[in-house]
C-alpha cells in the first residue's frame, strides 16, 4: 500500500512536469480554464472597488464643489482625451485578437497582437506624458507648486492663441518638468481664494486617478512581456490559454476605467470652453 502510494505521488509530480496543460489538482482542462477565468473576474471585482474608492471621493467633492470642478476640468484638453480614448480602445481590439489567437492555438499571432497592444498602450502613455508636461506649465500638479490663479490665466491665454509659458526667460524654473516659477502675487491671490483649494482637490483626483490608471497599464505591459515570451516558445495551446485570456480581461478593464475617466475628468467642463 505504502509503495503504491509513493508511486502515485511520483506520478502526480511527473504530470506536473510534462503536461503544464493540466495542473495536478484539476480534473479536466475545462475545470482548470473555468477556475482561472472566474479567478480573473473576481480579481477585476476587487479592482472595481479599488478604483471605486477614488470614484466615490471624486463624486463627493464634485457634488460639494460643482462649479470649481467644472472650471478645473476645462483646463484639460478634451481633444487629447478623446484621441487617447480611441487609441486605448484600439489597443483593446488588438488585445481581443490576441485572445482570439490564443483560442485558436496560434502562438506567433499571440505575440504579434500583444506587441501591437503594447505599442498602442505606449502611444496612450506618450500622449499622457505630453498632457502632464503641459499641466506642469500650468502649475496644476497638486503639490506646493499648485497655483490656480496662474492656471486659469495661462489657460485662457492659450485658448486665445497666446504662448503663455514661452514668453518667460530660462531663469524661471520650477521643479516639475522645468515649469516656470509662479510669481509671488499669484501665490497670494491663491491664498485669498478658497476656490484654489477646491480646484487643487480636482487636480489631486485627476492625477491620482489617471496615474493609478497609468500604473495599471505599466503593470499590464510587464505581464504582457512575460506572456509574449511564453507564447513565443509555444507554451499556450487551444486547451491552455488562461493567462492570455486573463491579461485580456485585465486590459479591457483598464480600458473600461478610462471610458469613465474620460467624461468625468475631461468632458465635465468642456462646454465652458466651447465658445472660443
Amino acid at each position: 500500500m505504502q509503495v503504491t502510494e509513493k508511486k502515485h505521488a511520483q506520478e502526480a509530480h511527473d504530470d506536473h512536469g510534462h503536461g503544464h496543460e493540466l495542473a495536478h489538482h484539476f480534473v479536466s482542462v475545462e475545470q482548470q480554464h473555468d477556475a482561472g477565468n472566474l479567478g480573473m473576474w473576481m480579481f477585476l471585482t476587487t479592482e472595481v472597488l479599488f478604483f471605486g474608492g477614488l470614484f466615490a471621493a471624486y463624486t463627493i467633492y464634485r457634488y460639494k464643489f460643482e462649479k470649481v470642478f467644472e472650471q478645473a476640468s476645462n483646463i484639460l484638453d478634451p481633444m487629447l482625451g478623446a484621441i487617447n480614448t480611441i487609441v486605448l480602445i484600439f489597443s483593446s481590439v488588438t488585445m481581443a485578437f490576441a485572445v482570439r489567437s490564443a483560442q485558436q492555438g496560434k502562438s506567433k499571432a499571440i505575440v504579434a497582437w500583444l506587441g501591437a497592444t503594447i505599442v498602442f498602450g505606449g502611444l496612450f502613455l506618450g500622449i499622457k506624458y505630453f498632457e502632464w508636461k503641459h499641466d506642469a506649465q500650468l502649475h496644476v500638479f497638486p503639490t506646493s507648486d499648485f497655483n490656480w490663479t496662474w492656471a486659469r490665466e495661462k489657460h485662457s491665454e492659450g485658448e486665445h492663441g497666446g504662448h503663455g509659458h514661452d514668453s518667460h526667460g530660462p531663469e524661471l524654473k520650477g521643479y516639475i518638468f522645468n515649469s516656470p516659477v509662479v510669481p509671488a502675487n499669484y501665490v497670494e491671490s491663491d491664498a485669498r481664494n478658497p476656490e484654489a483649494k477646491q480646484a487643487k482637490l480636482f487636480f489631486f483626483l485627476y492625477f491620482s486617478m489617471t496615474s493609478l490608471h497609468a500604473l495599471h497599464m505599466v503593470i499590464g505591459f510587464g505581464v504582457m512581456a512575460v506572456i509574449m515570451a511564453y507564447a513565443w516558445n509555444g507554451y499556450y495551446t487551444a486547451n491552455y490559454y488562461v493567462p492570455v485570456e486573463s491579461i485580456g480581461l485585465y486590459w479591457h478593464f483598464v480600458d473600461l476605467v478610462w471610458i469613465f475617466l474620460f467624461p468625468l475628468l475631461y468632458l465635465l467642463g468642456a462646454h465652458l470652453g466651447a465658445g472660443h
Binding site: M42, V48, L49, F50, G52
Partner: peptide
C-alpha cells in the same frame, strides 16, 4: 473581495 480594495485605496 469587495471590502478590502476600498481600505487599500483609502
Amino acid at each position: 473581495l469587495l471590502g478590502t480594495p476600498v481600505i487599500a485605496i483609502t
